[in-house]
Simulated scan of single mutants.
Amino acid sequence: MGLSLRREDFSALPGWADDRPAAAFAAFRRSAGFATTSKSYRPGSLGLTHEDFGPAYAAALAEPVSESGYPSDAQARAFFETWFRPVVIGPDESAGFVTGYYEPEVEVEVSERAESGYRFPFLRKPSNLVKVPDPDNPPAGIPAGYAFMLDDSTCCPDRKAIESGAFEGRGLEIAWARSRADVFFAHVQGCARLRFPDGRVERITYAAKSGHPFTGIGGLLVKRGEIPVEEISMASIRQWLAAHPDQGDGLMWENRSFIFFESAAVENDYLGPVAAAKVPLEPGRSLAVDKRIHTFGTPIFVSAPGLQDFDETRPFARLMIAQDTGTAIVGPARGDLFAGCGFKAGEMAGSIKAAARFVILAPAGSETARRAGYER
C-alpha cells in the first residue's frame, strides 16, 4: 500500500481534549451492535479485523448509558482512550481532504402520482439490474469498473436515457417531485426525506446505481467559467440551474451515474439514513471513507484547521466513526463528513471542502497498533 503507520499519544492530538465525543461513542456502539449480532464488517487493507475490534465492541455494548444511548463526554473519552491507540497514516500526513454530505429533505411537496407540477420521479431498483460479479474483470461489453449491469450482461441505461423514459411503464416510481434538481441532488447524496401533501414524511435510501461513472457538475461549471472556483457550492450550483433552465437538463445529464432508491421508515428524526455500515448515520460523527482501506466501525480523529467545527467557534477537530463510503472517496485520508438532515445541514455540507489530517484509532493489541509502535 505504501503507507506508513506511526503512533501518536492522545495528549498530542490537537483538539482531542476539547472534543465532545459522546455522540461518537453512540455511533460506535451502533456499529458494535450490528457487527456482533448481524454480520461482521469486512476488513480494509489497513488490516483491522472483527477480532481486533471484539474487546472494544463488547465493552461498548456493556457500557452503562442513558436511555438515549449517549454517555457523558468524559465517559466516552475514557472509553476510547482505554480501548484504542492513535495511529497516524503516512507517508504524507498533510495530504488529507474532507468534504461534506447530508440527507436532503425535499422541501417542495412530492406526490404519489404524476400530476400537474409533479413530473420528476424517484425510482426503485429495476428487477433486472444486477451487480457485476467482478468489476475488474467484467463480462464482454461491460466496461471495467462498472458495479452494475442488466441481467442480460448489457450496460444499464445512463441518466439521460433513464430520465427520457428507459424504464417507463415498469412501476418503479416511489414519488414525483416538482424539480429535477431536487431529484438530482438526492442522487448526489444517495438519500432523501420526502414530504407528502398530507404531512407524511418518508425516507428513501440508496439501493443501486446505473454503474456509469460519476461526474461532478460543479467541477464542469468551474472549468467552463460559469462559477468561480472560490464560489462553488451546492447553493451556487442550484442557483445556476435555476437561472439556466434551458441548459440545466443537459448539464445534469453529463453526470451519467443514476441512483435507484428504496423506501425506509423514519424511526428517529435526528439520525440519518441507514448507510453502507448498516446502521443509521450520526449527524456530525459519521464519516464516509474508502472501504477498500478502512474497516467500517473504525474511529478516526479528523482535524481540519481551515474548517470551523459544526457546533463550536473553533477549528474542526472531531472523533468520527467510519460508517459509510462513496465512489468519490478514494485514499486513506479522504473522507466525507455527514452533516445531518434537512436544509441547514445541506448548507453546511455544501461548504465543506478542507485539507485535513486523519488519525485512526486502532484497537489496543491489534497488529495495526503494533506496526505503529505500540506494544501488545
Rank of each mutant, 00 (worst) to 15 (best):
G2R: 14
L3N: 07
R6Q: 13
S11V: 09
W16Y: 09
A17E: 15
A17W: 03
D18N: 09
P21V: 03
P21I: 02
A26G: 09
G33I: 00
F34P: 00
K39R: 15
Y41M: 06
G44C: 10
G44H: 05
H50W: 12
A59V: 01
S68G: 14
P71H: 06
A78F: 06
V87D: 07
V87F: 10
A95V: 08
Y101R: 02
K131C: 03
V132Y: 01
N137S: 12
P138F: 07
P139M: 07
M149P: 02
D151R: 13
D151I: 12
T154D: 06
D158F: 05
K160D: 11
I174S: 10
A177M: 08
S179H: 12
V183H: 01
F185G: 05
G199R: 07
E202H: 01
K209N: 12
G216C: 10
L220K: 11
A235R: 13
W240L: 12
Q247L: 15
D249H: 12
F258V: 01
A264N: 06
P273D: 08
V274M: 04
A277G: 02
V279M: 11
F296M: 11
I300L: 08
V302H: 02
R314P: 03
A317P: 09
L319M: 12
G331D: 01
P332G: 11
G335R: 01
D336G: 10
E347G: 11
A349P: 10
A355G: 14
I360D: 01
P363V: 08
P363R: 05
A364Q: 08
E367N: 09
A372S: 13
E375C: 02
